[in-house]
């Protein structure tokens, strides 16, 4: 009951933001929702399956580039360009998903290498990707007579898409498949002897995470209105994972809180405090040392009345 009330209040606030908060905060909140979706995608692998992926930005960027190139250079409409972007990112995930043949530090290294390949291609293949300049002048999305004309409208588009993704994600994590991922994280040998083909389950998890990252990428390109290799770079992948960890890995709200903290530090605090990246570093260190389960973990501990040192 309490939770439902909180959810309704939160939804009301989020719906009302453009009306009272002005363009700066509306844009920032749009960005937070998009990156929270990317963090959620990273956390499907980390929080559920225990895999630390460093190439979520690749699917994000490939989806964004695909949509941008189709819209800008070929005049393809949003109805085709947006799904095509998600499809392109997902296809890449189908290939990169072979990384699940490795575990632990090897998985981190191979996804890191994959991430650099995508970034390198985006950067070097200038005739196709626009190189350093990327693809500019991406129009706002329009489907037939329905056109998004400004930041406020696009805010609502992002809100609806992200909420739909969260709904799907919620069912996914509660489904037999989602449960199997948490089982694999806990004990692979046990899961194997219960009849699970670990490799195929992790492969599918990786591809599903790629779908969420791709949707975030498409939302991002219409928000940002241009795309360059930075979107597919290493820091974006790392930040996606760190957002999930700060907020609370293995939860749905966590990545949103984490994305909020990181992006508010970067976009707002940076306006009056020059060393905001230092603050970001301190936030990361404090999280890892004293709140390894992130903000959501702290809340859970506070609710259970445990003030002790137990983790």
């Amino acid at each position: 009951m309490m939770r439902l009330l909180l959810a309704i209040i939160a939804l009301a606030v989020v719906l009302a933001v453009p009306a009272f908060a002005g363009e700066f905060w509306t844009t920032l909140l749009t960005q937070i929702m998009i990156f929270a979706l990317l963090a959620l995608s990273a956390d499907l692998l980390l929080g559920s399956a225990g895999l630390f992926s460093l190439c979520q930005a690749s699917f994000f960027a490939v989806a964004a580039y695909t949509t941008a190139i189709l819209q800008v250079r070929h005049g393809v409409g949003t109805l085709i360009a947006a799904p095509a972007g998600v499809l392109a990112g997902t296809l890449l995930a189908l290939v990169f998903a072979f990384a699940v043949r490795t575990r632990g530090v090897y998985f981190i290294l191979i996804t890191l290498a994959f991430g650099y390949i995508v970034w390198g291609v985006a950067y070097r293949w200038a005739s196709f990707t626009g190189g350093d300049n990327g693809v500019t002048n991406v129009p706002l999305p329009a489907i037939g007579p329905l056109r998004v004309t400004g930041t406020t409208q696009y805010y609502y588009v992002v809100l609806v898409v992200v909420l739909l993704c969260v709904w799907a994600y919620r069912i996914l994590t509660a489904s037999p498949f989602g449960l199997s991922l948490r089982g694999i994280k806990s004990s692979e040998t046990r899961m194997r002897s219960l009849g699970y083909d670990i490799g195929r389950h992790l492969y599918m998890a990786f591809v599903l995470a790629g779908v969420f990252a791709s949707i975030a990428g498409v939302l991002y390109v219409y928000h940002n209105r241009f795309i360059n290799p930075v979107a597919g770079s290493f820091p974006v992948s790392v930040e996606a994972v760190l957002m999930a960890i700060i907020g609370g890995s293995g939860t749905i709200l966590g990545p949103f809180i984490g994305a909020g903290i990181v992006l508010i530090l970067r976009n707002w605090v940076s306006g009056f405090f020059h060393y905001y990246t230092g603050m970001l570093g301190i936030v990361f260190i404090v999280t890892v040392l004293w709140a390894p389960k992130g903000i959501m973990g702290l809340i859970a501990r506070w609710k259970s009345g445990d003030r002790g040192e137990g983790v």
Partner: peptide
């Protein structure tokens, strides 16, 4: 669910 095909279901 380990020996059941339903272990692949993601939408429920």
């Amino acid at each position: 669910l380990g020996t059941d095909r339903r272990k692949w279901i993601v939408y429920r």
